[in-house]
Design a protein around this nucleic acid. Structure first.
Lengths: 131, 131
DNA sequence: CGAACCTTGACACTCCGGTGATAACCTTGC
DNA sequence: GCAAGGTTATCACCGGAGTGTCAAGGTTCG
């Protein structure tokens, strides 16, 4: 391990390459992820990205989220839109409600809860039901 | 208008081409939309797709939903997954909650509600807050 | 039977998400 | 000032969403 000119090591913030190494993302992807607003690190005076512990954590969980559920960054971005844009959420929610859902497509255990609480808020169940 | 061999006109179900005309979607897209489970018409004995009033309605609102909010079919499919797969929803929800959100990105009016009710269910707001 | 419609399957094309590579140019620390 | 590293901007490539089109083969009904 060669001694490098440590650019910024104020507290426990990592630069993009360091963050890349510890999270498994490529620097390129870190920039991309930032670009779509999913993980936006703070910046040093000179404009260097500074990844804090929270950022790193989020980057790792993001990775898990992605390959754990076959979801793409775009979908997460979309989910974020759903959260931030009440209009969109209402519209989508409304459309889905009007959709006749065939039980076969839904995991049995999920289905029961869904059917019974159809009129509850979408994710409200995530807090009331413990796994 | 030539007289066609009316394939199946039981009640008020339309065949795919008719449905296509009244909804604005191409037959191709209707099949595609069905393929991703968004609008799945019933079938005649011979396997012909039969679009009922509900299906047609959903197809039209789907169109509005899409070009009204710049959303893709894939996103709607994803939203559906969110609704049906509690696991996914919880995971995504959890990740988003851990995300530090910067106000600038959020519509001012939305933001207030969001900030204050940060711990409420995602879409619960859609029902409590009236626009 | 035959015209007009339906079905599935597949090829093809465009646009965009996801990524790498590379260039041209600042920043930091020895 | 120089090396290692950071920054933005871009070109490039692959795969998947979205969509048209065509082929081969059933269905319906006059």
């Amino acid at each position: 391990m060669i001694t490098l000119p440590t650019v910024v090591t104020d507290s426990s913030t990592l630069t993009i390459n360091e963050a890349a190494e510890t999270t498994g993302w490529s620097p390129r992807m870190l920039r991309y992820i930032e670009e779509m607003g999913l993980v936006v690190p703070s910046r040093s005076g000179a404009g260097y990205r500074l990844y804090g512990a929270g950022d790193l954590q989020r980057l790792r969980t993001l990775r898990d989220l992605l390959d754990g559920h076959g979801v793409g960054l775009a979908e997460i971005g979309f989910a974020r839109r759903l959260v931030n844009d009440t209009n969109l959420a209402t519209a989508v929610h409304g459309w889905l409600e009007s959709t006749p859902i065939r039980p076969e497509e839904i995991a049995a255990d999920d289905w029961l809860a869904w059917e019974q609480q159809k009129h509850m808020a979408l994710l409200d169940r995530a807090e009331t039901s413990s796994t």
